[in-house]
């Protein structure tokens, strides 16, 4: 709220430069608590990941820094003594296929619900959303049956089959909102030019909707990294696990936590995803804006 005062020019105007500096200082001051909140745990995880084990259990010295030389041992451990390499590959492959399935199903569904004035469209849309109210803690049992019927037990493909149940409803809603923002005129123009309805969708509507599509992909990507229970129930073989499951099941051994490797394992997937996220953030924002406001 500090910026409030800034936005309201109360005092006599100073030079532009001074004003800009003052504005920046206040914005940074306002951001500081947020940055601290968001970044401190990450910083702490990084320090933990690079610390030697005995260095973790000392309260007599400043814990924020190293008192024994930093070590790559925890990262080394991840790659050489666990299947972490496989976990990353699996996670990426799962995210890729889940995104693909989600787009292939949610794009047509969102378009149909938004544009084709179908009877029951509203109820169908709401029905799809309502699947979120079904608790996963029970759902995983019947799904186990499905997974084994498909002969996907203990393979990461089982998660490719299951995660779209989480991503499709969300992305359908998102895209439904988004398609509404595309002006009818451009679609009609395309149809006049001889495209069918499908052609109009593919050639005109999709190209202008790509912020929405990117948003859907980013969502699919993040949502498929948040699950733990399905992965636990369907995948028990080490080299088939995705990162969250692998890290949480193989780096805690009974009453010993391998803190350093745990943190290293989390950061190695979380931070790159954050960077990618940020690259697309503007598109993402316009994606959501389109989806929800119009």
């Amino acid at each position: 709220m500090a910026t409030v005062a800034v936005a309201t020019p109360y005092r006599a105007p100073r030079t532009e430069r001074a004003k800009s500096i003052r504005r920046h200082v206040l914005i940074y001051l306002g951001l500081l608590p947020f940055l601290g909140l968001a970044v401190f745990p990450i910083f702490w995880m990084l320090v933990t990941a690079l610390k030697q084990e005995p260095d973790l259990y000392r309260m007599d010295v400043v814990p924020f820094w190293f008192h024994l030389p930093p070590t790559w041992k925890n990262f080394d451990f991840l790659f050489h003594r666990t299947s972490y390499g496989d976990w990353i590959v699996n996670t990426m492959a799962i995210a890729f296929w889940v995104s693909a399935i989600t787009l292939l199903t949610a794009v047509p569904a969102g378009y149909a619900l938004a544009r084709l004035r179908l009877p029951f469209a509203e109820n169908l849309g709401i029905g799809i959303f309502m699947t979120y109210l079904v608790p996963g803690i029970i759902l995983f049992l019947p799904l186990a049956r499905v997974v084994s019927t498909l002969e996907l037990q203990d393979s990461w493909w089982s998660l490719v089959a299951v995660y779209p149940t989480i991503t499709i409803p969300f992305c359908t809603w998102l895209l439904m909102g988004f398609f509404k923002t595309v002006p009818f005129e451009i679609e009609e123009a395309a149809m006049v030019d001889g495209c069918g309805q499908l052609g109009a969708l593919l050639r005109v509507v999709l190209p202008v909707s790509w912020p929405g599509l990117i948003t859907a992909v980013i969502f699919s990507f993040t949502l498929s990294m948040q699950d733990f229970l399905y992965a636990l129930a369907f995948v028990s073989v080490s080299d088939q696990k995705p990162v969250p499951l692998g890290v949480a099941t193989e780096l805690i051994r009974g009453d010993v936590y391998f803190w350093g490797s745990l943190m290293a394992g989390a950061l190695l997937v979380g931070v790159p995803v954050a960077i990618v996220y940020n690259l697309f953030l503007d598109k993402f924002i316009s994606g959501i804006t389109g989806a929800a406001i119009k």
Binding site: T222, L245, A248, I252, L262, G270, V273
Partner: peptide, 22 residues
Amino acid sequence: VRALVVIPFTLPIAVSVLGWKW
């Protein structure tokens, strides 16, 4: 700044919770 503040959202929840546990 934006890149930094979105990190909590992109970490796999099961693992960042363990960070908090620590």
